[in-house]
């Protein structure tokens, strides 16, 4: 138990936790959106994120990006990366919905069948990116999909620099970018769901699918929309992850997905703002925990948090919502 380190640098750990949690929160939005409308855990969402990181890696490698490009070029690369990752992740999420979930919905399958299907799909995606793509593309683009199942490094787009220091807590430019862009993305999504016509449709279907259908809301379109929105958020998370950690792997999604799901449940699944709260909270708890014990226990902390939340407050910190009263 390393209390000295924890309390001695509490500010620093909090900042680290917040920038980590922001990425969890972005991924958690995908779980929360789908759960809010369909009451399903989209287990394959972690792979939606994984595809996003590979899209970013592919783009940057295709451009032959060197480490630390000039600032103008870096901004361009990040914007392009966001677009490509959002397209790849959104497309994957949509494909998952069309291929797997729609036929099951037609049959009114029990929730566990959805979950098993999603697990199978997730395995398929992981294997495609670890095994099939390297074989297919191995010779054409060796640097992207070199060998199966290895950690693939990415170029540094923005060099990590300490921007400013408050009370001994230094904040780096990357942490600031990650946190601010994650919050901006979430604010945009919140605005979209709460203020636009399409968002009203989403809330209506979440609240009562039958009545929404009677009022002329196209349910299938709403379902497609939420999958795409969740995918776009996962794509944004993938870009931020690539920028901050600079690596990816085909199996990257599993643990990250579980943590994001934990964040969603922690904040109140189905609740958009809850995802933000839950993500940031989990990020902080995890960094504190890793300091207190050892970093090799980091992954256990998230699961323990999940079990404790589910036992004592299964509706999460902010409660479940997305326009629906808790049944």
């Amino acid at each position: 138990m390393n209390f000295d380190d924890l309390f001695g640098h509490i500010g620093q750990h909090t900042v680290d936790g917040l920038s980590k949690g922001a990425i969890y929160a972005l991924i958690a939005l995908g779980y929360t959106l789908v759960y809010g409308v369909l009451r399903l855990i989209n287990f394959a969402h972690s792979e939606v994120f994984m595809v996003g990181t590979f899209a970013v890696l592919g783009l940057w490698t295709a451009f032959g990006v060197e480490n630390n490009p000039p600032i103008g070029q870096a901004v361009l690369l990040l914007v392009l990366g966001l677009i490509v990752a959002a397209l790849a992740s959104g497309g994957t999420a949509l494909a998952i919905e069309r291929i797997a979930y729609r036929p099951l919905r037609r049959k009114n399958a029990p929730p566990l069948i959805f979950l098993i299907t999603a697990i199978g799909l997730s395995l398929v995606l992981v294997e495609i990116f670890g095994l099939v793509l390297p074989k297919l593309l191995g010779e054409a683009v060796p640097s992207i999909f070199g060998r199966a199942r290895i950690i693939l490094g990415m170029p540094t787009i923005i060099e990590q620099k300490t921007l400013f220091t408050i009370f001994g807590t230094s904040i780096t430019n990357i942490q600031l970018i990650v946190f601010v862009s994650a919050v901006v993305m979430m604010a945009l999504l919140d605005w979209f769901i709460n203020r636009t016509r399409y968002g009203r449709g989403v809330r209506a279907v979440a609240q009562n699918p039958e009545t929404a259908a009677l009022m002329g809301v196209n349910q299938e379109r709403v379902i497609m929309l939420i999958f795409v929105l969740g995918g776009i958020m996962a794509g944004a998370a993938a870009l931020l992850w690539s920028m901050r950690f600079g690596f990816t792997q085909n199996s990257i999604g599993f643990v990250l997905g579980l943590k994001a799901f934990t964040a969603a449940v922690l904040g109140g699944i189905g609740n958009l703002r809850g995802a933000l709260v839950g993500g940031l909270f989990l990020g902080i708890v995890e960094v504190y925990g890793a300091t207190l014990f050892q970093s090799s226990w980091e992954d256990v902390i998230a699961f323990v948090v999940l079990v404790v939340v589910l036992m004592f407050r299964p509706t999460g910190i902010l409660g479940e919502s997305l326009g629906r009263a808790r049944a």
């Binding site: 797997a100 069948i113 098993i116 697990i119 199978g120 395995l123 398929v124 992981v126």
Partner: peptide, 20 residues
Amino acid sequence: ADYRWLAFGLAMVLVMILRP
């Protein structure tokens, strides 16, 4: 045998969709 996880995943998806 390298492809076995891919095959297991596909088998799960197909069985769940076509023959739950």
